[in-house]
Write a protein that binds this DNA or RNA. Structure first.
Length: 437
RNA sequence: GUGAGUGUAGCUCAAUGGCAGAGCAUCGGACUGUGGAUCCGAAUGUUGGGGGUUCAAGUCCCCUCACUCACCCCA
């Protein structure tokens, strides 16, 4: 036996059966992206350290970094948003504006793997740059909605909030700007640990009893989207920055309605926070209740990020779809409308080596007509070849021996139905095509 | 980074502290113009690694590593 190794922790091999499912999901996602007017780009796996550093807050520790042979500090991309912002800055003059792109590529995080979490995973991103209005954010939400519906998801929530709320809350409590992320972090846990839990968190972070009491009012906000936002208005109306927040969320909700996203899907959730440093406005996250898994999409507005790379502030918003989590859920709920393990339609069986030339030309003929065809190249007898087709998941077999050659006929065996028909040689292509429909 | 659970053949799993096994998969043969068959045969292990207790350890103890799950955080 050889050296015993497996794939690196948190990274996976994909068999054909798995790849066919992945390609199906990616195909649907990509189809919707194009349908909404987004065009593809790709960026390199490795970015310079200066591109990556300082963009991810606490999460920066999860970056894969190393030195190249010229001693330059570099890292594997952590998401697609930061490389995209660098891309925009580098191609500013070539790009139309607004610019809408999609990008489906792996990213890497030095995380400890668990269910639905990997060190190498694909993200499917759409972003719109150059549009200040929340109409762009709303369109992003609609794309997320359409993708999930098309994939067969029945019950999910697209949660929205705005980063601006945390500025307002910081003002409201009279705390310094540096406390903002602590407020966000504590609030974000509300659903998990309840009001008392959040109060304890705040205490742990060193907030005064008076401020914790003030936060309790905020944390008690509930009801429909408009009930929640109006409840916040009552408390925060006179706090500087509130009207910016209020208008932003309202605009977004209105646009979302105009884009015909069902109102029950869009949830304004003032307790949604997102860890990444670069968000400036609306933030979004999609969750499903079962199976239990973290968010399946995440995104938001980042109006200052491109400016870091170009000295020109260009508004931008977008979202990422977590391919692996979607696939984890789809696997668990068996959401695929097919059950195929191969792209191959036809196996041409070889019984009699003397007929090989004939069989090669039949194979090539089918291939030229666009039918995915395999000529059997093993050394099993016909029984073994049938088993091969079954194992591989090929549904059609062409079986031809000397008799058929003489008669100018071929047998088509349909394995799923366990039937076999004999047809004239010249009808082969039409017969196969009809049956493939 | 923290915690819990699990590590035995390629895979799924057995084996009261007492000879390391089965099923599936693999390979060879029988059968030879048709469904995952059947029959005969074969190969496969440092029981994750190291140490300890014992007459005797896959089994008990310690250390370590790997995997899985959960927490943190996240897609």
């Amino acid at each position: 036996m050889g050296i015993k190794v497996s794939a690196y922790k948190g990274m996976r091999d994909f068999t054909p059966e798995v790849m066919i499912k992945r390609n199906y999901v990616i195909g649907i996602i990509e189809g919707i992206f194009r349908n909404y007017g987004f065009d593809p780009i790709e960026t390199p796996a490795i970015e310079l350290w200066d591109t990556l550093s300082g963009k991810y807050g606490d999460e920066e520790k999860l970056l894969y970094t190393f030195e190249d042979r010229g001693k330059r500090k570099v890292g594997l991309r952590y998401d697609l948003t930061v490389p995209f912002s660098r891309f925009v800055a580098n191609h500013l003059n070539e790009l139309p504006r607004p610019f809408k792109r999609y990008q489906i590529q792996p990213v890497w995080r030095a995380d400890k793997p668990q269910k639905g979490r990997f060190r190498e995973f694909y993200q499917c991103d759409i972003d719109i740059i150059g549009v200040k209005s929340t109409i762009a954010d709303a369109e992003i939400l609609k794309v997320l909605y359409s993708v999930l519906i098309k994939l067969g998801f029945k019950s999910f929530n697209i949660n929205i909030n705005s980063r601006k709320l945390f500025n307002v809350l910081t003002e409201y409590l009279g705390e310094g700007k540096e406390k903002e992320f602590l407020i966000a972090r504590a609030i974000d846990k509300l659903e998990k640990i309840g009001i008392e839990g959040v109060k304890e968190e705040l205490k742990k972070y060193g907030f005064s009893d008076n401020n914790i009491k003030k936060m309790e009012g905020i944390l008690s906000v509930k009801g429909t989207n408009s009930e929640k936002i109006n409840a916040l208005k009552k408390i925060l109306e006179n706090t500087p920055g509130f009207s910016l927040f209020y208008d932003e969320v309202n605009d977004l909700l209105n646009y979302a309605e105009e884009f015909k996203i069902p109102t029950k899907v869009i949830k304004f959730n003032p307790f949604l926070a997102r860890g990444l440093d670069y968000y400036t406005g609306p933030i979004f996250e999609t969750t499903i209740t079962s199976p239990k898994i973290g968010s399946i999409t995440g995104g938001g507005r980042y109006d200052n990020l491109i400016g870091i790379f170009s000295n020109r502030d260009i508004p931008a918003t977008g979202s990422s779809i977590g391919l692996e989590r979607i696939i984890t859920v789809m696997d668990e709920l068996d959401m695929y409308p097919f059950d195929k393990k191969t792209y191959t339609d036809v196996l041409v069986a070889v019984q009699d080596k003397k007929l090989k030339n004939e069989l090669i030309s039949i194979t090539e003929y089918l291939r030229e007509s666009g039918i995915s065809t395999e000529l059997y190249m093993g050394n099993k007898d016909l029984r073994g070849q049938i088993n091969y087709a079954l194992k591989k998941g090929i549904n059609f077999m062409i079986i031809m021996g000397e008799n058929e050659l003489k008669e100018q006929t071929v047998n088509i065996k349909i394995l799923s139905e366990n039937v076999q028909i004999k047809i004239k040689r010249e009808d082969l292509l039409e017969e196969v095509k009809n049956r493939l429909k």
